[in-house]
Write a protein that binds this DNA or RNA. Structure first.
Length: 449
RNA sequence: GACCCUAUCGUCUAACGGUUAGGACAUCGCCCUCUCAAGGCGGUAACACGGGUUCAAAUCCCGUUAGGGUCGCCA
């Protein structure tokens, strides 16, 4: 059984970075499923222990965004419901002597760090709490101080083989003992995450590069708790053109993307490849993408993410869509389905889903478009010359050559009035393809305006 | 400041001591064509800098410069 997880904090709307992590986990798991036939489990874990900032509306947004992207999950968990479990693990760690009480205030710790920095030392916690005598502790408590607790990090080298970064190692001496219980009794991210990963049988953890140092700490926690250590993979963070992923870019939420008319598969296809040597491939769904996904292809350098890439890729994704997929998408948008002929004619001219509805409107029965006065007679002649019988793709050539012979017009003078009368626009899909879509009645009506 | 990671066409990147430095996207040109697209074919374009090691360096080593991550009672 392969288990991955995506663990968002419902404290805001999902952005492109979140989406990428969610997606990479899904693709990674499914790739293994296809390759090995093994069962996979995708755990969606709400890191909602921060009651202040966690909001139900954000949680709903996570569900919606994942569904929109086509990312499904097999199991849903809330950290806010597992507090008792965390407390009992803390007791276990206390019993093992791997946790100690500290009494510094946040300000005092800040001061210590500043001093260390000023002296050119790494701002690592000095373990003062570990050396406290029972008497000193009582004195602090008498002052009204409440303790917070830290996990004892072994001062040894902790290493792992990262799926994207290769062999990694961190020395415990360079790291601070992490706080695992706050003064108010709540739990910071580090330990609950490990407990959950153990309890939910997570086998592979794919998350951003910003978590690499945490990995050393968490591996030590897994070791103490006797859990199986998952395999880690840390793809580099996305950056914007000017270095850091800008606020605007980083906060590009999936709903904004959706409003812009970007297809979920456009996002998926780009994010699955950005940072790898593999060219973007147009896939019709996540399963198809997962089959050709390979986490180990990711490089260690940070790729630039440019939203423009999305806009450039979107038309390609749309062009490759089958009629069924297009109609499914239109249904999502609350639009009516289109015919095979229509899609065949219009697909190459579509950059966003919204364009489909625009063209459907142009083609809908009963529309009439203005034609310059100088071309009215020409259009009537054209109507008269429309070949008898059903209108097909071959009709256009026969029709226009007859028209050319009759009127002496050619080139732009010949075609432009037809396009204007039939579509009301200067540009658009090939008329040859559009004729069968409109049908005889509609063509005649529009020409006779 | 400390620890760690990174540096090849505009962009994503390949190369794992010997290549005309390869591909994809973008761009440019040509073809197709009633238009805009789409599609087909082709072109331009890169080893951050300085030292070493070696018969031979994009590749290994050192330094410089530049970017990034981490160093929270955030996640």
């Amino acid at each position: 059984m392969i288990s991955v997880r995506f663990a968002p904090s419902p404290t805001g709307y999902m952005h492109i970075g979140n989406l990428r992590t969610a997606l990479l986990n899904r693709l990674f798991a499914d790739n293994l499923r296809f390759k090995t036939g093994e069962e996979v489990s995708y755990v969606l874990r709400m890191d909602d222990t921060d009651l202040e900032r966690s909001k139900p509306e954000y949680e709903q947004a996570v569900y919606e965004d994942l569904k929109w992207m086509g990312i499904s999950w097999d199991r849903l968990e809330h950290q806010s419901e597992r507090l008792d479990r965390y407390r009992s693990v803390v007791e276990e760690l206390k019993a093992k002597g791997r946790i100690y009480a500290c009494y510094e205030t946040a300000e005092e710790l800040e001061y210590k760090r500043r001093r260390q920095r000023a002296r050119g030392l790494p701002p690592v916690y000095d373990r003062a709490g570990m050396r406290l005598t029972a008497e000193e502790r009582r004195a602090y408590e008498a002052e009204g101080r409440r303790p917070h607790y830290r996990f004892v990090l072994e001062h040894k080298e902790t290493s792992w083989d990262d799926m994207v970064r290769g062999p990694c190692a961190y020395n415990g001496e360079h790291l601070s003992d992490p706080v695992v219980v706050r003064e108010d009794g709540t739990f910071p991210y580090m330990l609950p995450s490990v407990i959950d990963d153990m309890d939910f049988g997570i086998t592979h953890i794919i998350r951003g590069e910003d978590h690499v140092t945490n990995t050393a700490v968490q591996i030590q926690m897994f070791e103490v708790l006797g859990g199986r250590i998952p395999v880690f993979g840390h793809p580099p963070l996305l950056t914007g053109r000017e270095g850091k992923l800008s606020k605007r870019l980083g906060s590009l939420s999936s709903r904004e993307l959706r409003e812009e008319g970007i297809e979920p598969m456009t996002i998926a296809c780009l994010l699955a490849r950005l940072g790898t040597p593999d060219p973007v491939v147009v896939c019709r769904d996540l399963d198809e993408l997962a089959k050709v996904f390979d986490l180990s292809h990711f490089g260690r350098a940070q790729p630039h993410f440019d939203p423009d890439e999305l806009f450039k890729l979107n038309p390609r994704i749309l062009h490759e869509m089958s009629l069924e997929d297009v109609n499914a998408r239109l249904k999502d948008e609350g639009k009516s389905p289109v015919s095979a002929d229509f899609w065949k004619a219009v697909a190459p001219n579509v950059a966003k889903v919204g364009d489909i509805a625009d063209w459907a409107d142009v083609c809908s029965a009963g529309r009439v478009f203005d034609v310059p006065a100088a071309d009215r007679d020409f259009c009537r002649t054209a109507a008269a010359l429309l070949p008898e019988g059903s209108v097909g793709e071959e009709t256009f050539a026969a029709w226009t050559s007859a028209l050319k012979a009759q009127t002496g017009r050619k080139g732009k003078d010949l075609f432009r009035p037809l396009r204007l009368a039939l579509t009301g626009r200067e540009q658009g899909p090939e008329l040859k393809m559009l004729l069968p879509v409109l049908g005889r009645e509609e063509i005649l009506r529009r020409l006779q305006g």
